[in-house]
Amino acid sequence: MFTSKKRGIFTALAAALALTASVASAEYPEKPISYVIPFGPGGESDITARHQQAFFKKKFGQDLVISYKPGGGGAVGWSQLNDMPGDGYNIMGINLPHIIVKPLQKDVGFKTDELALIYMFHYTPDAVVVSDDSPFKTLQDVIDHAKSNPGKITFSGSGKGTANHLAQVTFDKLAGVKTTYVAFKGTGASVTALLGNQVTGQWGYTSVGAKHADKVRLLAVAMEQRHPRFPDVPTFKELGFDIVSGAYRGIAVPNSTPENVREKLSSMIGQINADPAFKQKMENDGFALVDVDYKGMKAFMDEKRQAYVAAAKEAGVIK
């Protein structure tokens, strides 16, 4: 429709105007901040943002106003992020591995490096989930069965080129087995398939175990240490597989946002993360907090990019 160059000029002008007007004041934030979720309401990106919403208001006295810009698996929102005014009052949720894998597949209107990431506040660790009545009690049971029946074990998961899918590919390689990955639209649909016994198991998240505690069993979680809500579930590392992965969520700003505002926002998100009540709520839902602030972002992204790109090549979702 419009060329991005033209847009860029407009935004730059707008941003310049905005900066002189509002940002310099020390009272930031002095009005509600618009927090765009590039997915629909009701998903995990929404729920975790809603958790932040309550604490933000309490700590900083201003509202986080959440709105949604779904489409293209997040691409629609991210491709428009840099067109928004960089006045510190516009922020957007971002998800890994989406923002790394998608731009490498095709032109989706944004590049990973064009996004100004300021904080990664949590991740939902990958986990192998089976239903309560499954004959598989441990991860070893699954591996043994898969070794004697290559390709017969089916795992549901959310989408392709996603955290679930890349974890499945990595696991198959490390364990030397072949399993079949069945992609569903979102975690909700993939859990439904598991509960209805349409598949053998699920490459899901720890949040699935929290939400459906009485119906499913976690066999292993992809974390450094065991999740506080599931003290009996081993990590992949304990079982000898070097997998620490999941869907990371964070916050980005338009790239016209000035440095001091980025740092300010980064430390504000960090303060919410440091609140024990927030941590408690998030962990109850099966999430795990991480603290990657604005300064540490580059190192974090470089490391993640390498791992995700390798796995995505293995999975055949990028060339």
């Binding site: 293209g72 698996g73 894998v101 998608k102 095709k106 989706v108 392709k160 080129g161 992609a183 569903f184």
Partner: peptide
């Protein structure tokens, strides 16, 4: 658009 599952455009 971007396919919901396979992420092809």
């Amino acid at each position: 658009g971007v396919a919901e599952i396979s992420a092809d455009v």
